[in-house]
């Protein structure tokens, strides 16, 4: 019988949740026995070939490409998990919501103290357009589970993965349930 498939992605975040994932250390070996890794920055696989059993999403949605990746993950994942504060609440990138897109771009590229000479807002067609706000992932797609934390600790991620892959209930013990 084929092993369950796991995919991961990082949207608007810092990759800290992925780093925390790697912090499960020697249990990575155990994990490889449990799952096959599909699309993920960890194996650099870029596109889905079929459905996966569990998708992990780090980061919120800050631009159009994040939304597209998120939607694809939703379509391809039987269980989709929002991992970390950015995915769940927007996190640090969502600080820009307190100023608004216009002001952010203006200060960053036009009249901020670090801008020398006449600045310009980058506008290469290759660059995805920014959303008006940074959104939690559950505001764009249905999320099946949330793993809070900034990042969720390696213990948290390991406990959650084991539960999801074995079909057990995802009940995190108190010390593992943190928003930071």
């Amino acid at each position: 019988m084929a092993k369950p498939k796991l995919a991961t992605c990082a949207l608007a975040g810092c990759f800290g949740c992925h780093m925390s994932f790697l912090d499960i250390d020697e249990r990575l070996v155990e994990l490889i026995d449990l799952v096959d890794l599909d699309v993920s920055p960890l194996d650099d696989k870029k596109s889905f070939t079929g459905m996966v059993d569990v998708g992990l999403v780090e980061g919120g949605c800050a631009d159009e490409r994040h939304v597209k990746v998120l939607r694809e993950f939703r379509e391809r994942s039987r269980i989709l998990v929002a991992v970390g504060a950015c995915a769940i609440s927007g996190g640090v990138p969502a600080l820009r919501n307190l100023a608004g897109l216009d002001e952010c771009l203006r200060v960053a590229y036009l009249d901020g103290p670090t801008v020398e000479g006449g600045g310009v807002i980058p506008n290469d067609p290759e660059l995805p357009l920014l959303l008006d706000k940074v959104y939690p992932v559950q505001e764009f797609v249905k999320i099946d589970h949330f793993l809070p934390g900034c990042p969720p600790s390696a213990e948290t991620i390991w406990a959650a993965l084991k539960a999801l892959l074995t079909g057990a209930d995802l009940n995190l013990p108190y010390p593992l349930f943190k928003y930071e």
């Binding site: 597209k68 807002i121 506008n123 357009l129 959303l131 706000k133």
Partner: peptide, 25 residues
Amino acid sequence: WVSLNEALKPAIAIQGREPVPEDQA
């Protein structure tokens, strides 16, 4: 809650261009 088109409106106005076409995204 929000449609992608709505969420992109301010950026389209600021950048003066439409979203990246699907095949390039």
